[in-house]
Write a protein that binds this DNA or RNA. Sequence first.
DNA 1: TTGCTCCTCACGTCACGTGAGGTGGC
DNA 2: TTGCTCCTCACGTCACGTGAGGTGGC
Lengths: 132, 132
Amino acid sequence: MGKRESAVYIISVAAELAGVHPQTLRIYERKGLIEPYRTPGGTRRYSQDDLERLELIQELTAAGVNLEGVRRILGLREENLRLRSQVDRMRRLLGEAEQRVTGHPAGETVVHRVTVTGRRHLPDIRRSTPFG
Amino acid sequence: MGKRESAVYIISVAAELAGVHPQTLRIYERKGLIEPYRTPGGTRRYSQDDLERLELIQELTAAGVNLEGVRRILGLREENLRLRSQVDRMRRLLGEAEQRVTGHPAGETVVHRVTVTGRRHLPDIRRSTPFG
DNA sequence: TTGCTCCTCACGTCACGTGAGGTGGC
DNA sequence: TTGCTCCTCACGTCACGTGAGGTGGC
């Protein structure tokens, strides 16, 4: 969060863009929700990523989540995204592995074949619904 | 939550076991954190699963998360656990698929082989750290 | 100097836990 | 009847956002 080059917004601008009080941004930082880059002089600089994170924070607090809740939810969401992309990657690898065995491209049938051979169900990721 | 047979604790007992006020349990229910079984007469009955969920809720509120935050965190955690077990299952399937190709059991080298053939990294699940 | 930054302290509002008060069925 | 249940309403505390007040560097 807050790479030197991309951190371009001073706190008043970031606050205006996010629609919050500058002091609110300082509170968010103290509570560990966001960590803007600091210039050598000690002033905060917010990046575009920071602004997107602020938008998420706004959504959650508007929905009634307090700051400690927001902090944990952001962490869990990140972890969740990591796990999702990992599942996607492994699903692709399984398709490729099957193709090497059968000699033709993987389709829906591949999932079935792998399932049968492996004696296990391959769960449908589309079932997992994102939260909040 | 709250299967008929396993829901054995009346609210006063559940509250005592969870270390909270009975009225607090009613609040948790109104906020959608927990849903005990109801007898035909309309009284609440809590199961062992409910009590474990209450313990989680206690941990989170003690850490300063408010009830809307708890509600979402519990949902995200569940989803997270589902994703983790899905990754585990697919990892096992990949090992089995590789064994069929190479003719010998999968080990650390299998991960490497699959990675090379698939031109992608197989992320290490042990990297993903559980949250709060 | 002006307008920003930094910080801390104080107030108002709201969420939530506790408790009281009044009801009804085993 | 006693002790539980159900519900709603009220109060106290705390978190958080807003704002003021005083500082210092471009």
